[in-house]
């Protein structure tokens, strides 16, 4: 089984995200050949004009959605960590939806089974299309590295600013 350190998922940078929903359109087109956000595996949230962020599956370790499923319809791919839905077993009961902290697994509007990000076979279309480069296909480790770098940059900028002012 691939280590959690090697698993890449789609992460949104709220500082860059503008809430345009291009990711939703790209996803619904890639997966369902139509334009419809309710068929997108990634969804955008805007709060009070000041916060924008899109959210999709984080490929959790011991995923709560898989644990919650009473019909064993969900499993996690050993290779990539994505959640695999057995559409024959799923009856849309929604226990997994309740278990997911991010609202990343959703009930399909027509198929009455749940659906979730599958990383487009390793090249997520949302990441490719995002006009703001706010989406990253990235491992948790690299996310942390990036966060550290930007935090230090910020600290230094502030330090420099207070020195000069």
């Amino acid at each position: 089984m691939s280590s959690i350190h090697a698993r890449k998922f789609v992460s949104a940078d709220p500082d860059k995200c503008v809430g345009c929903c291009v990711c939703e359109y790209a996803c619904s087109y890639e997966k369902e050949k139509t334009f419809n956000p309710v068929k997108s595996r990634i969804r955008v949230v805007r709060l009070d004009s000041l916060i924008d962020m899109s959210i999709t599956c984080r490929l959790c370790e011991n995923p709560p959605c898989v644990l919650a499923c009473p019909r064993d319809a969900l499993s996690q791919s050993e290779e990539t960590g994505i959640i695999i839905v057995d559409e024959d077993k799923c009856n849309g009961c929604g226990w997994c939806i309740e278990a997911c902290d991010y609202g990343a697994i959703m009930l399909h509007p027509e198929k009455k089974v749940v659906f979730v990000c599958d990383l487009c076979d390793g090249s997520p279309k949302c990441v490719e299309w995002c006009p703001e480069e706010a989406l990253d296909f990235v491992t948790a480790d690299v996310l942390a590295q990036k966060a550290r770098i930007s935090a230090v940059k910020k600290l230094f900028q502030e330090a420099l600013r207070s020195e000069t002012s």
Binding site: V18, G19, C20, V22, S49, L50, P131, E132
Partner: peptide, 8 residues
């Protein structure tokens, strides 16, 4: 902050 409209 800069925001975008749907699909922009």
């Amino acid at each position: 902050k800069l925001n975008g409209c749907s699909s922009c």
